[in-house]
Design a binder for these strands. Structure first.
Length: 976
DNA sequence: CTGGGGTAAGTAACTTTGTTCATC
DNA sequence: GGATGAACTTTGTTACTTACCCCA
């Protein structure tokens, strides 16, 4: 135990060391934000991990401690100077069931690999043999480390796949400490599921996980939106615009004079821009985006974000209507199952991921680390790769795609100067280890293929820059053994499997994240928004965006256009989203994912709700939050409505999915066979097409059915002539249960559930209150599910104890039942207040106020009396204590204090008797009910209370007489 | 190889209107 | 004797989701 405590304290101290370090580093706002979010995530992780089952007392005992230190562990193992702490941490970890260190250690730097490996093995043992390990840790003498090392050395040859699978490495009983053997304990362990070939245990995301994922998603989205607005605002900077114009050749200036501009007319301008501005991922000190933009303008180099923003600024300078468009690569709404790793680590990685890798959310300084490998999503690696990030970020490239792509792969390349062709296999290899582990799914292969396609589609002119990017930068990487690469890749593939990709996926595949859109009134007769990717010199190339983005199917995407002080969700414009949906639905082993499109799921709507106020909001596309800077003329309105129409049209013309399961939760289409029990097609048509012979209907035809009671809760009732549109038979079990409850019931009676549709309803018509009588239901109450359920002429007064007032005033009322709660295995109604006729409302409220006032006064009086009594009690105790002290100090005989109790017993009788003799007609009240008090009184050895009349006080109102002894003791007696 | 069908396991949502006993 | 409040025996079923396997 001592040993464990020692290791624990070491862990803690090393943890503190690193925390301090991180605080020291935390000079930036972004880092502070990261810490804040980390806290949230950690808390959540704790909650989730604490919910896991414990198998033994040790785990229970150490659970809290382990959880608290999870984050510290990850930090510890990253630092070469804390190898010892790392090791001991692993021992600590061995007491927990989870394998967080296994994963975080994967990315330790080379110098730590050896130790980390050992630790990981220890952890893998811990998974299955935590009791044994706890004992090792607890009972072993400090010198026992060597036996562990010996043991572990034997495991050095374990292949990489073992790292994730966490196989059993049974400790040799001979190696156990003698203590343990002496105990003769026999501990049996079940074979892991993996070894038996059985079904792997599936840990599914709990509601809490989902809630957290949703929160993270929303917060991330908000941050990205804010970032977009920031950039958009910088694009409006007149100085930047003027500077851009000054750089522009004279002949290109004339372009602004062209009326009815077309996409083709923009070509020379875009070509010029592309030739003059290049993408470089530069590590810059943190500053405002405007400053960064100015620097980019000055140096003609910048991040893809800056270059895209500059293009927008240029278009605006030329009086074009232009907007900055960005793919908001936001954390997933779904907590992707932390199947391969404990959730707390997932959270941790997420926390690192969002802040350390998002190109959008944090500022330029952060972008240095962004440009670095996705591996950096682990904080461990962040430390490990100290100095690496800036080095990596110095690479240059002429296209954003390639720059991003290169950055994502540069770490994985073990040699310098790889061409694109060489890079691709590397990239695709990122998910390969999963395959080797048997964990890979079909979708991952598909992902790789798409990846390759996307890269080939977007990396056209990259060769020189690839060389550019790698030269002299990857010497360290080159020295890292292949084995280590595998680990890194595995970490990455684990990241793939998570929902929290942030900008990770985009960097990985090199899909463009930013571009401009220029409104060309010469296009399409009515004009249209034209995609202009000045960085890659692509005009009207939405398809290319789609191709590239389609590969990033691991996370939900929003495409948002920023203009003026608002944003507009234009995701629908991009076909890739539809593809994405289909891929998610059918591509990954036949699994189905709910459409997360903002148009339907309105995650974006919810998140950006505050921004909508006072702005034009489209009914169909509630996420529309565009405010065209200052001019809200009819032209703008037309442009907006045209775009809305276009978006709607696109929505309606999305291709039909080819596999049936995709229809299950499809936002636009539905198959009858995939409807749930409470759904129906109404009207049943039109048929939009067929899938495997099944007719496809619009989703808008799917109606949800409810029972009469359910509709009642919404303040709706079934029209008189309507018959149930669907009748379900109640389950046989339930029927049996009911029959057994009441045998007299007809056994053949058919319990059915009658369902009605929305179109069969009318507003609830309840009988009106007349003559001050509240209409009640058969139970003599009113079910107040909502305001709509109140009978006309009545009002719901939700005040505690108000029924007393109504009763006193003899006003007719009905208890208001507001719902049910489950108690003792059965549903019990929950009441809240009463329902009375409206005309009595004021009278009741008035009387209630009086009643409450009276009650409050009584309460106050009672509290005060109690307070006074307690004060007396306290003071008398103090005095008694003083007396006892002085008594025993003065007494040279110094009797043992243990005898005090005996004294109490001995002296109790005379004191009590004295009281009793004095109050034959009084009874104890308040303070005297306390037996403690009595015993305290009894403590006063050798003192008999004397209550002199002059010390008495009398409370005439309550008929309470307070008698006081000279010693400070007092009693209150109520006179009869 | 893909998609459909089936199964298993886990989670979420829905269900729904007491009784007895001690104390004041 | 009535009012009040706490304790008791702290559900069970179904729908849905997801992963996986098998087969055509």
């Amino acid at each position: 135990m001592r040993n464990r405590d020692k290791s624990k304290s070491q862990t803690q101290s090393s943890g503190r060391l690193h925390v301090n370090q991180s605080i020291h580093d935390a000079g930036t706002l972004a880092r502070k934000s990261q810490e804040g979010v980390n806290k949230l995530l950690r808390r959540s992780s704790r909650l989730s991990s604490s919910g896991k089952k414990e198998q033994d007392g040790f785990s229970l005992e150490n659970d809290l401690k382990t959880n608290e230190q999870e984050v510290v562990h990850t930090m510890d193992v990253c630092n070469a100077s804390t190898v010892e702490g790392c090791h001991r941490d692993a021992i600590e970890n061995s007491q927990a069931k989870e394998q967080e260190v296994v994963h975080s250690m994967d990315v330790c730097n080379a110098s730590n690999v050896e130790d980390c490996h050992r630790d990981a093995i220890e952890n893998s043992q811990a998974k299955d043999q935590e009791v044994v390990h706890s004992m090792d840790a607890h009972n072993a003498s400090p010198g026992d480390d060597c036996h562990k090392d010996t043991l572990l050395d034997d495991s050095e040859e374990m292949n990489d796949s073992d790292w994730e699978d966490g196989p059993i490495l049974k400790s040799d009983p001979v190696d156990r400490s003698p203590n343990e053997r002496m105990k003769g304990l026999t501990i049996e362990f079940d074979e892991p599921s993996g070894s038996t070939g059985g079904r792997k245990p599936v840990r599914r995301a709990s509601a809490e996980d989902k809630e957290l994922a949703e929160l993270v998603h929303k917060v991330h989205l908000l941050c990205l939106l804010a970032r977009g607005r920031l950039i958009d605002n910088a694009c409006d900077d007149s100085l930047i615009q003027a500077s851009l114009l000054s750089l522009l050749p004279t002949h290109l200036l004339k372009i602004s004079e062209v009326s009815n501009i077309t996409a083709n007319a923009l070509t020379p301008l875009v070509t010029w821009f592309h030739d003059n501005f290049h993408v470089r991922n530069l590590a810059r000190a943190e500053r405002s985006f405007r400053t960064a933009l100015a620097t980019a303008l000055e140096t003609h180099e910048g991040t893809p974000e800056e270059i895209a923003a500059l293009s927008v600024a240029l278009f605006r300078a030329l009086k074009f209507t232009a907007r900055f468009v960005s793919i908001l690569d936001v954390a997933s709404l779904k907590p992707e199952a932390d199947k391969y790793e404990p959730s707390n680590q997932a959270a941790e990685r997420v926390s690192g991921g969002i802040f350390s890798t998002s190109t959008l959310m944090v500022d330029n300084l952060k972008r240095a680390s962004i440009a670095a490998s996705p591996v950096q999503t682990s904080p461990c690696n962040e430390k490990d790769g100290r100095g690496k990030s800036s080095r990596k970020s110095k690479g240059g490239c002429s296209t954003s795609n390639v720059a991003q792509f290169r950055d994502s792969t540069s770490v994985n390349e073990s040699t310098d100067g790889k061409s694109t062709c060489q890079v691709q296999p590397d990239t695709s290899r990122q998910c390969v280890p999963k395959n080797s582990l048997g964990l890979k799914r079909k979708g991952d292969l598909e992902f790789e293929m798409q990846l390759a396609m996307a890269i080939s589609a977007t990396s056209v002119e990259t060769h020189e820059n690839i060389h550019d990017s790698s030269d002299g930068n990857n010497s360290l990487e080159a020295s890292i053994p292949t084995k280590r690469w595998k680990r890194i890749e595995r970490v990455e593939s684990a990241s793939c499997s998570q929902g929290f990709s942030t900008a990770l996926g985009s960097r990985k595949v090199g899909s463009p994240l930013f571009w401009a859109e220029v409104y060309c009134d010469g296009e399409n007769l009515t004009g249209k928004w034209v995609h202009v990717d000045a960085v890659n010199a692509i005009i009207d190339g939405e398809q290319k965006v789609e191709d590239a983005a389609a590969a990033c199917k691991t996370s939900l995407r929003y495409v948002v256009a920023f203009a003026g002080h608002g944003a507009k969700d234009v995701t629908r414009r991009f076909q890739f989203f539809a593809d994405h949906m289909q891929l998610e639905s059918g591509g990954t082993g036949g699994t189905i994912k709910v459409s997360e499109h903002p148009g339907e799921n309105s995650s974006l709507n919810h998140v950006i709700l505050p921004e909508k106020s006072g702005q034009e909001v489209s009914k169909e596309y509630g996420s529309k939050i565009e405010v065209e800077s200052s001019v809200k003329d009819s032209f703008v309105a037309t442009r907006n409505s045209l775009e809305d129409m276009e978006l709607e049209t696109r929505a309606l013309t999305e291709p039909l999915p080819t596999n049936q399961q995709a229809y299950k939760n499809h936002a636009l289409y539905a198959l009858e066979r995939w409807l749930t029990k409470y759904q129906i097609l109404h009207p049943k048509g039109p048929i939009l097409g067929f899938c495997s012979g099944h007719p496809v209907y619009p989703r808008s035809c799917v109606q949800t059915l409810k029972t009469r009671e359910r509709w009642l809760r919404e303040g709706l009732q079934i029209k008189g002539t309507e018959t149930p549109v669907k009748v379900l038979e109640q389950s046989t079990k339930l029927k049996k249960a009911r029959v057994s409850e009441d045998v007299c019931d007809e056994i053949d009676s058919k319990e059915t559930i009658e369902l009605y549709g929305k179109w069969q309803l009318e507003p609830l018509l309840l009988p009106r209150a007349v003559n001050g009588i509240v209409p009640k239901n058969e139970r003599g109450q009113v079910d107040v599910w909502s305001e709509k359920c109140l009978p006309p002429g009545t009002v719901h007064i939700r005040l505690p104890r108000v029924f007393v007032v109504a009763k006193r005033l003899e006003i007719d009322y009905a208890p208001a039942m507001v719902g049910f709660e489950f108690r003792n295995g059965r549903a019990v109604p929950v009441y809240d207040g009463i329902v009375v006729c409206t005309e009595f409302k004021d009278a009741i409220l008035e009387a209630y106020a009086e009643e409450e006032e009276r009650r409050a006064a009584e309460e106050k009086k009672r509290t005060e009396a109690q307070a006074i009594s307690r004060w007396y009690q306290l003071l008398s105790s103090v005095i008694t204590r003083q007396m006892l002290n002085s008594y025993y100090q003065d007494s040279s005989s110094s009797q043992p204090s243990g005898n005090i109790q005996d004294k109490n017993i001995e002296t109790k009788t005379p004191v009590q008797s004295s009281k009793d003799s004095k109050q034959p007609t009084a009874h104890w009240k308040a303070n005297n009910q306390d037996t403690t008090h009595t015993s305290l009184v009894a403590l006063e050895v050798g003192h008999e209370h004397v209550f002199l009349t002059k010390n008495e006080s009398f409370d005439a109102e309550n008929s309470i007489r307070t008698k006081r002894c000279e010693c400070g003791f007092s009693i209150q007696v109520e006179e009869l």
